[in-house]
Simulated scan of single mutants.
Amino acid sequence: MTAIEERLPPLKPHPEEKTLRDQVRGILREALEGPGLTEESKDRLRRLIAEHPDRPEAAFVEHLRSLRLAESDGELLAG
C-alpha cells in the first residue's frame, strides 16, 4: 500500500447506502483494483481521490477528463 492509498477514504459503500456517491466510490474501487488502467493512471486516480475525499464524483470526473485529454494527444491510458 502506498502513502497515498493510506490517506484515502474507504471506497467501499455501506450495504444499506445506494446513493450516486456510493456508486461512484464502487466504480473508483473497481478501477483501482482492476487491470484496465496503467499504474501511472491508478496513481493519478489515487491522488484525485485524496484531493476530493468527500466528493468522489469530482475525482471521477477529473479522472475521465485526464483520460480524454490523453486520448486526444494520441495516448491510451485505459484498456
Rank of each mutant, 00 (worst) to 15 (best):
8 L>V: 05
48 L>I: 11
5 E>Y: 01
45 L>S: 02
33 E>V: 03
4 I>W: 01
46 R>Y: 10
13 P>T: 08
28 L>D: 04
7 R>M: 13
43 D>T: 10
19 T>W: 04
13 P>A: 11
10 P>T: 11
20 L>M: 05
21 R>F: 03
76 L>Y: 09
76 L>R: 15
1 M>I: 03
68 R>E: 15
6 E>H: 10
7 R>L: 13
73 D>A: 13
2 T>N: 14
51 E>L: 10
5 E>W: 02
18 K>C: 06
6 E>L: 13
14 H>D: 12
40 E>K: 14
20 L>H: 09
22 D>T: 06
31 A>F: 12
77 L>E: 09
34 G>I: 03
56 P>N: 02
30 E>F: 06
15 P>I: 11
76 L>P: 01
2 T>Q: 02
49 I>W: 08
42 K>A: 13
13 P>R: 10
66 S>M: 14
78 A>D: 00
57 E>A: 15
50 A>H: 02
10 P>L: 11
24 V>M: 06
10 P>F: 12
68 R>L: 15
4 I>M: 04
78 A>G: 01
59 A>S: 07
61 V>I: 14
13 P>M: 05
15 P>N: 05
70 A>P: 04
29 R>T: 01
58 A>E: 14
59 A>Q: 06
44 R>V: 09
35 P>F: 03
15 P>C: 05
51 E>R: 11
19 T>P: 03
19 T>D: 10
76 L>N: 09
67 L>S: 00
40 E>F: 08
71 E>K: 08
11 L>R: 03
24 V>S: 02
4 I>S: 02
45 L>M: 02
56 P>W: 10
25 R>W: 05
4 I>P: 00
6 E>C: 02
2 T>Y: 07
30 E>V: 11
47 R>S: 14
63 H>C: 08
30 E>C: 03
28 L>M: 06
51 E>D: 13
9 P>F: 09
